[in-house]
């Protein structure tokens, strides 16, 4: 084994293309599961605040399951368990269409939806009830008060935990390696197996993850800054 040599990996076009494919798959999984999670979280929140009696316990059970079972076990249950119970036609179609990535998106997205919906809910709860009363006294209906008074404040309160959880979703996308999705960690392991330059490729992988995590944190900080009313009042 030679000394530390990053260029042995960075100048090899095969390794670079494997890395880029890994990053691409990581982002497909990340963006797919983030979108799924946010959509589902808003639906769960709507179900929870709706006057339907049945909504509350269903959402509570959903959140409780997804927060108390390790994400890895949820992914395994999806890929090794539920996959085999699906009807033949559907499972054949999935097997031909990159089932690993699809199940990673579904598993991570459903799990993250629980966290996102809790973040949004605690953000909304921190808006004082007087705001709603004041808005209605000013002539807003329920929907319009929600839209113009409650939601802007609630979402702003929910931003810090939402950003934190968006970063951890990005990190959790590495769990997809367990069900065999060809994402970044998978690419790193593969390059390690071929090149035997473990130290170098782990270094590259760590820096890549750190780079994108910091970018997501930065985007979050920017959005939080833009949403800050003190700054808006000055502008």
């Amino acid at each position: 084994m030679n000394g530390f040599d990053l260029s042995a990996i960075l100048t090899n076009p095969d390794y670079i293309s494997m890395l880029l494919h890994g990053i691409q798959m990581t982002f497909i999984i990340y963006i797919g599961s983030w979108t799924l999670a946010m959509t589902l979280a808003i639906l769960l929140l709507a179900l929870r605040v709706s006057p339907l009696r049945i909504g509350e316990p269903i959402v509570a059970a959903y959140v409780s399951y997804h927060r108390n079972v390790p994400t890895l076990v949820q992914l395994m249950l999806w890929y090794f368990g539920i996959f085999t119970l699906m009807p033949q036609g559907l499972s054949d179609w999935l097997a031909n269409n990159n089932a690993e990535a699809i199940f990673a998106v579904v598993g991570l997205g459903l799990c993250q939806a629980a966290y996102f919906s809790e973040d949004l809910r605690s953000g909304l709860r921190s808006v004082s009830p007087g705001q709603m009363e004041a808005a209605q006294a000013l002539g807003h209906g329920y929907a319009s008060a929600m839209r113009f008074v409650i939601m802007p404040q609630g979402v702003r309160n929910a931003l810090p935990p939402l950003i934190n959880h968006s970063v951890s979703l990005f990190k959790n996308s590495s769990l997809a390696i367990v069900i065999g999705a060809p994402e970044l960690t998978h690419a790193i392991k593969e390059i390690e197996n071929i090149s035997f330059r473990t130290f170098e490729i782990y270094m590259i992988g760590t820096v890549t993850y750190l780079f994108f995590s910091l970018i997501i944190m930065g985007i979050g900080a920017y959005i939080a800054m833009r949403a800050d009313p003190a700054r808006r009042a000055r502008a």
């Binding site: 970063v167 990190k171 750190l210």
Partner: peptide, 18 residues
């Protein structure tokens, strides 16, 4: 602290394993 917050636990496990 920033590295552990920005890097997946899986990556950290692989590092220690190596």
């Amino acid at each position: 602290v920033y590295v552990t917050r920005g890097v997946p636990l899986l990556m950290l496990i692989l590092w220690c394993y190596f």
